[in-house]
């Protein structure tokens, strides 16, 4: 069965093959371009003024200022290009995962649909609070050193025992959306589950560039949390060795 993705999955932002070879395309947003020109002009001015007093700082200021002006005027940022982001678009990170659960479809669907269940095994979710049939409030912590994130999400599409689609509501720290589909596996092998998850931090600009640098990390965390769903619903617990003895203690 073909999967029809909502529009939000279509812009993967990862297709660099279609980018023009010559590094002149626009990857900086308009506001950022104006700020670049202004900031660059200030740096250039202050650099040129201080050439006599402190030539090294002055020249670096002037060069930096010139680069910023160029970035603003051309709308192309070589740094964005290097870190593989495109500030003009808000870049989404997409994760897809497939697994089969050895349980009947209705049971698997119901377990996922009761969103309060998710923090039982998704270790990076602190809580999910279901406000009503549609809206819910989510809290997550991805590492000890980062603050907890929270957002509101809405179920945007669902069909009982078949799929659930959700999206964070406007103004969230992490824009995220996803869909989980449930199908009968052949030959009584349980339920095939397909999860598609897409997120971006702060809707573009440097935020998404930073998010991209952490993508492998966050991707692993999300994949583990999704795997935990299968482990928890089948085995009743998530396997762990955290807290066991070793010669490292």
């Amino acid at each position: 069965m073909a999967i029809i993705y909502p529009d939000m999955y279509k812009n993967t932002g990862k297709d660099h093959t279609r980018m023009p070879k010559k590094s002149t395309y626009i990857n900086v947003k308009t506001t950022e371009r104006i700020l670049s020109v202004a900031g660059g002009a200030f740096l250039l001015y202050s650099g040129l003024r201080s050439v006599g007093r402190n030539p090294v700082t002055a020249i670096s200021k002037a060069v930096g200022g010139f680069a910023l002006i160029a970035r603003g005027v051309s709308g192309h940022c070589p740094v964005y290009e290097q870190i593989g982001t495109d500030g003009a678009k808000s870049e989404a990170v997409n994760i897809k995962q497939y697994f089969t659960v050895n349980k009947p479809r209705a049971e698997v669907y119901q377990f996922w649909r009761k969103l309060e269940n998710l923090p039982l095994f998704m270790r990076h979710l602190e809580s999910v609070e279901q406000k009503d049939e549609k809206y819910s409030h989510w809290k997550a912590k991805f590492s000890k050193n980062t603050p907890a994130l929270s957002w509101n999400a809405a179920i945007v599409k669902e069909r009982e025992n078949e799929f659930i689609g959700w999206s964070s509501v406007e103004g969230s720290t992490i824009n995220n959306a996803g869909k989980v589909e449930f199908r009968d596996a052949p030959g009584g092998r349980g339920t095939e589950v397909q999860v598609v998850f897409s997120y971006n931090m702060g809707g573009g600009g440097l935020g998404s560039g930073v998010a991209k640098l952490f993508t492998p990390l966050v991707e692993n965390i999300i994949r583990e949390d999704v795997r935990n769903f299968k482990q928890y619903i089948e085995a009743g617990e998530v396997p762990t060795i955290a807290g066991q003895p070793s010669g490292r203690d």
Binding site: E237, P239, I241, G243, Q244, P245, S246
Partner: peptide, 14 residues
């Protein structure tokens, strides 16, 4: 090496 380590504890219900 034979080392002194903490005793194991129950980490999961099963």
């Amino acid at each position: 090496r034979v080392e002194t380590v903490p005793d194991p504890t129950i980490l999961n219900p099963r």
